[in-house]
């Protein structure tokens, strides 16, 4: 699966930002993973931690939040989240890809198909008690 490609993109962005901000340490990385991506958060985090070894973000805590899908119905102009269906077949809840209002229209995805870094929390020189 493509968790590693995605984690590579994230690792690069985190390191670039940390350098630009002159971080001596990245303490935390906050991720947002869309409900409609086909990414397994545990695997993204595993790869990210792996790829950040020996970097300024090596010890960062990685936290993720799921972003719910947001869709628009082309027929009745519903805009909002999808209904969720507990599927006994797959032992998990899956968003139902049908308009929650009219049950008929085609849906356009507005949100929920991205995996982004929302923020990082860093320490800079000034945060570290000066060593005399």
């Amino acid at each position: 699966m493509h968790e590693m490609s995605v984690a590579q993109g994230i690792a690069q962005a985190v390191i670039k930002t940390a350098e630009r901000e002159k971080a001596v340490k990245v303490a935390k990385i906050n991720l947002e993973i869309g409900e409609l991506t086909f990414l397994n958060p545990e695997q993204v985090i595993f790869w990210l931690a792996e790829l950040l070894k020996d970097s300024v973000a090596e010890e960062a805590e990685i936290e993720h939040m799921e972003v719910r899908a947001k869709v628009r119905c082309e027929k009745c102009s519903y805009e909002g989240p999808l209904d969720v269906h507990e599927d006994p077949l797959f032992h998990r809840s899956l968003p139902v890809f049908t308009c929650p209002w009219c049950k008929k229209g085609s849906l356009t995805i507005l949100e929920g198909r991205d995996c982004i870094v929302s923020s990082i929390e860093i320490l800079t020189e000034s945060d570290i008690p000066s060593r005399k």
Binding site: S5, V6, Q8, G9, I10, A13, V14, T17, E21, A27, T37, R113, D114, C115, I116, V117, S118, S119, I120, E121, I122, L123, T124, D127
Partner: peptide, 16 residues
């Protein structure tokens, strides 16, 4: 500690 917003960075999926 400084919190740096990275929402404007382009993600891999968005780039694709």
């Amino acid at each position: 500690m400084h919190k740096i917003d990275m929402r404007d960075e382009e993600s891999l999926l968005a780039h694709n």
